[in-house]
């Protein structure tokens, strides 16, 4: 780890801590974990893919790169949280086109959202570890499984309700792993 890496790791931890406290103040822990885990998974997956490609083409060490894994994950989190920044900073309400920011709207409506995003995050951590350990085949396979989880989750996402009657329809998804809730 270089000096820059230590500094950036400390900044990422501090900023994530600040973001978590802000989300808690707004009663929005659900959104912190939902967008945080998916954004971090997205950033880390992109970093892993780029390093694997560079290693394949130029023979560079896949464990080394300009962007550290925590930096990739953090940038992914920021990207996925752009609509929340627009809302709190500029009073812009959430609208459907904000799905361009890492499925910011649709992600809420997938089955068991937090468990699915946690699974995705853990899979991308594993893919990064495998790629950095020079197991590109296993890393690519793990990324493919993670992509499959995402595709299935998005395909199974509930439609956004548009009437009070819709809110009373139980579509049968296990939305929450806690017994008796959802």
């Amino acid at each position: 780890m270089t000096r820059r890496h230590w500094i950036s790791a400390a900044l990422v931890i501090l900023t994530e801590g600040y973001l978590y406290i802000r989300y808690v103040q707004l009663g929005a822990e659900f959104h912190f974990w939902l967008h945080g885990l998916f954004g971090a998974a997205l950033g880390l997956a992109a970093l892993t893919a780029v390093r694997m490609l560079r290693s394949h083409r130029r023979g560079s060490d896949p464990a080394r790169g300009v962007v550290a894994p925590w930096e990739g994950g953090f940038l992914g989190h920021l990207y996925s949280a752009v609509p929340d920044v627009l809302f709190l900073g500029f009073g812009v309400l959430h609208v459907l086109w904000m799905d361009v920011f890492a499925f910011h709207i649709t992600l809420h409506f997938i089955p068991a959202p937090l468990v699915a995003m946690l699974m995705l995050f853990v899979l991308t951590l594993g893919a990064y570890g495998l790629a950095a350990s020079r197991h590109p085949g296993s890393a690519a396979g793990t990324l493919a499984v993670a992509s499959g989880v995402l595709v299935v989750a998005v395909l199974l996402a509930e439609p956004i309700p548009n009437s009070l009657t819709d809110l009373h329809i139980d579509r049968g998804f296990g939305l929450c792993p806690v017994r008796g809730h959802g």
Partner: peptide
């Protein structure tokens, strides 16, 4: 995630998590 799911705040949140403080005007009736 486990701490949040076991927290008192979570128990008071929307049973349909997708609609918990979504900040999107999704109704019009």
């Amino acid at each position: 995630v486990a701490l949040y799911l076991g927290s008192p705040a979570h128990k008071l949140h929307d049973p349909n998590h997708a609609l918990q403080q979504l900040d999107l005007l999704y109704l019009d009736e």
